[in-house]
Design a binder for these strands. Structure first.
Lengths: 132, 132
DNA sequence: ACTATATTAAACCTTATGGTTGAATATATC
DNA sequence: GATATATTCAACCATAAGGTTTAATATAGT
C-alpha cells in the first residue's frame, strides 16, 4: 500500500541517530539559524558542526539559503513526516499492548464487582490513567 | 516537559537506519521468528544477520527467548513508540505548512467569489482535500 | 587594497559499521 | 556416542562516521 523510499528512510533515520543533529533540529524548530549560530552550543569545531549540518541537509531535514557570506538554515519537516508515517504502521503493536492492559483492568473490575455482589464488598481499586 | 533518553533514541534511530533491520522488524510484525527464519530472505551470512538482530535487541526493539537450540525473536514496540513521540513534537511544522496551503486555497476562493460578485463569473475551482 | 568574518575543503586520525569466513558451543536426533 | 542443527564468537576486511587541524574561498567593512 504505502511505498517507502528506503534510501530516504536510511538517510533520515541515520541523521536522527546523532544527539548533536537532533539538538540542531530542535533549535531550528524555534527559528532559522546561520551555520555558526547552530554550531555555537556544541563543544565542537565549526567544521565539525558544518559536517553535521550537511548530513541533515542530505537527509532533506534542513534547507539552506546563502545570503552573502552567511548560510541560513531552516527546518524542513516533510521527511520527518515520512519517518513518522513509517513508524505509524507499528502503532498497532503498542496500542495492542495497551488494549491488553485495559482488558486486564476491566476483567479485574468485573471480578471485584462479582465479589461485591456476593456480599464481600471492600474498597474498589481506582482505575488509573495510563497517560502520565 | 517530556524528557528523552538520548542514548535510547540514538540506538533506536540507528537501528532503524538500516534497510535489512527495518525489513526484519516488519517480518516480526506478522509473527515471531527464529534467527534463521529472520535471516533467510536476506542475501547474507547467518552470522551477518545475527549481528543485525543483536543491534535490534540492543536498541530494545526485539526481545528473544531461547528455546533449546533455537532463539525466538519477537517485536517489542515500546521503543518505537518513544521514537514516534520524539517525532510528534515536529508535527506542528508539517501541519503548519498544510495550514498555510489551506489558507492559500481559501484566499483564492475568496478572490474568486469577489470576482463573481462583480459580474465576471466563471468556473469556481473545486476545493481539494489536502490528505491523500 | 587590506583585513576581518563566515563557511567549506582537504587531509588526517580513531572508532564504528556491515560484511565475510572458520571455529566454537549447545542442543537434538539416531 | 556420533552426527546434524542452530547460533554465536573471533578474527579479519573495507568503508563510513565523527572528530580534528590547517588551508582555501567568498563576501563585508574600512
Amino acid at each position: 500500500m504505502v511505498e517507502y523510499i528506503t534510501q530516504t528512510l536510511d538517510a533520515v533515520f541515520h541523521a536522527l541517530s546523532d544527539p548533536t543533529r537532533r539538538a540542531m533540529l530542535h533549535r531550528l524548530s524555534t527559528s532559522e539559524r546561520t551555520v555558526s549560530e547552530l554550531a555555537t552550543p556544541f563543544n565542537m569545531s565549526l567544521a565539525g558542526a558544518s559536517k553535521h549540518i550537511k548530513v541533515l541537509e542530505a537527509a532533506g531535514l534542513v534547507r539552506r539559503h546563502v545570503q552573502g557570506r552567511t548560510h541560513i538554515c531552516a527546518l524542513q519537516a516533510a521527511r520527518l513526516a515520512e519517518a513518522q508515517e513509517w513508524l505509524r504502521y507499528y502503532e498497532q503493536f503498542w496500542e495492542e499492548r495497551l488494549d491488553d492492559l485495559e482488558n486486564i483492568l476491566r476483567a479485574e473490575d468485573r471480578a471485584l464487582a462479582e465479589k461485591a455482589r456476593h456480599g464481600d464488598r471492600k474498597d474498589p481499586k481506582t482505575k488509573m490513567d495510563s497517560k502520565e
